[in-house]
């Protein structure tokens, strides 16, 4: 019996219990790194609808969820996967063909909005974006501005109230999502979370959310994770569900464990450009596999071994990334 027995669950149970149609979900990670893919695949598998996604720069999980028809609203700073998708492919299709409502912010703005939510303040000032269309143009229609978890305005330009001079600032509305999804390297059997490498805005996102679901590469004894508490990211009492999902960020990278998977990202790119081949991708890699374990079996040990990170450098040295 450990402290987390009541929180430890499968991806399927975590999604069923905490995510419903219309949930506002913050996805952790960044473009091709540490996306909570095991959880995102499960959301797609369960056919959740009308998600309101909130993120900064995102890639794989964002694109998969949009492509699987799970998303109706999106607030983001960036949708791209480097050479594998300079602009995320299903994201681009959804925006160009009016399939989702979207609102553009910048990375700093989105991160600060999560921070404001975590701090419990209704808005936060910044100098970033003055004069830009990011501030001038609203993406969401006025009709949804009164709904729960939608800000009444995109931003407000105000004067610094502490200055006697003209000093405009951008006021950004706080984000308080229903759920934050995080993929971490380690969770202790006491529930302590440790992200290694870059944390992006995962910690602010988790602290801003009502519910936090953490999937992880390894569950380690309390005695190990508490030996170096300076390295830890979240305390147990902020975490609602823990999912043990080795390779749970595949095909994105997980620093210290594995690199991004160029083979799969290329396969994804080839499939995502066309509705028919995209449907076949979903059938094969999402709907056609009952679980994360079955997905990994399909990817295969040989492919996964090639991605294994060098322990010193945190990535797969010399990996063929074309």
């Amino acid at each position: 019996m450990s402290d987390i027995d009541d929180k430890l669950m499968s991806p399927a149970d975590a999604v069923r219990r905490f995510i419903g149609n219309g949930s506002q979900v913050a996805i952790g990670g960044f473009t091709i790194n540490r996306n909570p893919m095991a959880l995102a695949c499960e959301i797609a598998r369960q056919g959740v609808k009308d998600l309101h996604l909130v993120c900064h720069s995102h890639g794989q999980a964002l694109d998969l969820l949009i492509g699987a028809g799970c998303v109706s609203r999106l607030e983001l700073a960036y949708g791209g996967n480097g050479r594998y998708a300079p602009t995320c492919i299903r994201f681009r299709d959804a925006v160009e063909n009016n399939k989702i409502l979207f609102e553009d912010y910048s990375n700093y703005q989105m991160s600060l909005r999560f921070l404001a939510g975590a701090l419990g303040v209704p808005y936060i000032p910044s100098k970033s974006g003055l004069g830009s269309d990011v501030i001038r143009l609203e993406g969401f229609p006025p009709g949804i501005r009164k709904e729960r978890n939608v800000a009444s305005k995109k931003v407000v330009i105000a004067q610094n109230p502490f200055s006697n001079d003209d000093d405009p600032v951008v006021l950004l509305p706080a984000l308080t999502p229903d759920v934050a999804l995080v993929h971490a390297q380690y969770v202790g059997d006491d529930g302590t979370v440790r992200i290694t490498g870059l944390s992006f805005a995962d910690i602010e996102q988790a602290k801003s959310a009502d519910v936090v679901i953490v999937s992880c590469e390894e569950i380690v004894p309390r005695s190990i994770i508490r030996r170096d508490p300076d390295a830890n990211s979240l305390p147990p009492f902020l975490v609602d569900a823990i999912v043990h999902a080795p390779h749970g960020a595949h095909p994105t990278a997980c620093y210290g464990f594995y690199d991004y998977d160029p083979g799969h990202l290329n396969l994804y790119r080839a499939a995502a450009g066309d509705d028919e081949t995209w449907r076949a991708y979903l059938d094969k890699w999402i709907y056609g596999v009952p679980s994360h374990e079955a997905y990994l079996e399909k990817i295969g040990d040989t492919a996964l071994r090639a991605l294994r990170a060098d322990p010193e450098r945190g990535y797969a040295v010399g990996l063929d990334r074309k």
């Binding site: 720069s57 960036y78 160009e96 910048s106 974006g129």
Partner: peptide, 16 residues
């Protein structure tokens, strides 16, 4: 007509 990835950190870098 064509959607690109978006600001990312570019709007922030240009501002700051």
């Amino acid at each position: 007509a064509t959607r690109f990835p978006g600001s990312g950190g570019a709007c922030d870098a240009a501002s700051c």
